[in-house]
Computed example of a mutant assay.
Amino acid sequence: MNIGDKVRMLRGSEEGVITRFLDKGLIEVEIEDGFPIPVMREEVVVIAKEEADYFRREEAPRTSKPATTREEIKKVKTGQGVYLAFVQFNDKQLSAYFVNATEFDMPYLIGEEANENFKGITAGMVNANNYVKIKDVLVSEFDQWPTLVIQSLFYRNGYYSLREPLTRKMKFKASTFFKSQRQAPLLNKPAFLFQLDEGGAGGKPINPDKVKERIYANTQEQDVANSITFSRPPSQVDLHIEKLTKNYDTMNNNDMVELQIKTFEDALDKAIATGMDEITFIHGVGNGTLRNQIHKKLSKMEGIKYFEDSMKEKFGYGATLVRIK
């Protein structure tokens, strides 16, 4: 048995897909509607692919197959690609899937990268037009999600044009992640969806500007993001280093500014993701380095109406108000 195998319960009629192996001979099987249940390995049997093919042939009407229309061809080709899909399990948990909507079989390796260390999560083969569950993640831990690393090859029997290996590193921001909802291919469910082979497998990395262009697409889809609990930042965020860490006396200037900028970016991402109209950052005057870096980043960001110095009577040029579109 392998992760992704379709199985049937020996003492029931349920069918599902193996999503992970547990301790003491238990496996987790995801049945209909994405509900995972633990069962003993000896209580299930793998469903052979030939079985589905056989019954599909038996049930097919004995009539000639009509010619494929141009609209059908276009629809099939539009759905092709390799995707990372996060499906909502409940208001606190998402299930991550690696979706292969191509004509190739794909051996893959998926892991996490944090602090220059790599941790493998899963590896295997996902067949053409199939998918595999990677892991479950908690929305409450979104800020701590490490960088997700995906590597894969494209393979099929016979002659074909060789494609370059797929390698992607995904580090998510709340401001774009929770607005990326679309219908996931093959899963046929609303999901926070990211195409990994945009521009062709092994081509240029995903263009963040193009991702942003898609975040408002599919407005008729169910708004899953609104049902997820995601905390708003305060309307005023104090970036003075002593407010951010107790260990500032052991940090050099570069480390301090790096922490302040990260806090600024995280708070602004959450403000955009949760629909805030404005947020104020108190950065102090100092030598102007932090203020200048913040203003430089704001000037290049989409989703910002404008920004300006704020509360001058109290902070002089030590605070910046950001108005969000």
Rank of each mutant, 00 (worst) to 15 (best):
P66K: 09
E112N: 09
K77I: 05
D197F: 00
N90V: 04
L162S: 14
V82N: 02
Q293F: 06
M311T: 04
A128R: 14
A67F: 10
K171L: 11
L290C: 00
N247R: 13
P205I: 10
F307C: 04
T102D: 06
G111F: 01
T68R: 12
G25S: 06
S227R: 13
F194T: 03
L239S: 02
Q144V: 00
K119P: 06
T219C: 03
A319M: 07
A217G: 03
G288F: 05
D249C: 08
E103I: 12
V39I: 14
T176S: 06
A201T: 08
S140Y: 06
K74L: 04
R62C: 00
F192I: 01
G202F: 10
E258N: 13
L26A: 11
E258Y: 10
R182Q: 13
Y159F: 11
S299N: 05
I282L: 12
G275Y: 01
L187G: 08
N252R: 03
E242T: 11
V137Y: 07
G81P: 03
G286F: 06
L148G: 00
K74G: 00
K270P: 05
Y108C: 00
N115Q: 04
H295C: 15
R20S: 14
I37G: 08
S152Q: 05
F194M: 08
G4P: 02
I110G: 03
Q181L: 08
R57Q: 07
L193R: 06
E72Y: 00
F118Y: 15
N130T: 00
T245F: 10
T122Q: 07
D23A: 14
Y216H: 13
G199M: 07
F172E: 02
A48K: 15
G199H: 01
K204F: 10
E43K: 09
E71V: 07
N218M: 06
D277N: 15
L186K: 01
N188G: 05
Q293A: 11
L259Y: 03
G124L: 03
P205A: 01
G200V: 12
P165Y: 10
R163G: 03
L187K: 04
L94Y: 04
K171V: 00
I324H: 09
Y306P: 05
A85D: 00
R62Y: 02
G79H: 01
L298Y: 05
F86C: 10
E58Q: 13
N100Q: 01
Q183L: 13
N130E: 08
G79N: 04
K325H: 07
V224L: 15
N207L: 11
G25K: 06
L187C: 02
V285G: 06
F192R: 05
A123L: 06
F86D: 04
N287L: 14
A267S: 14
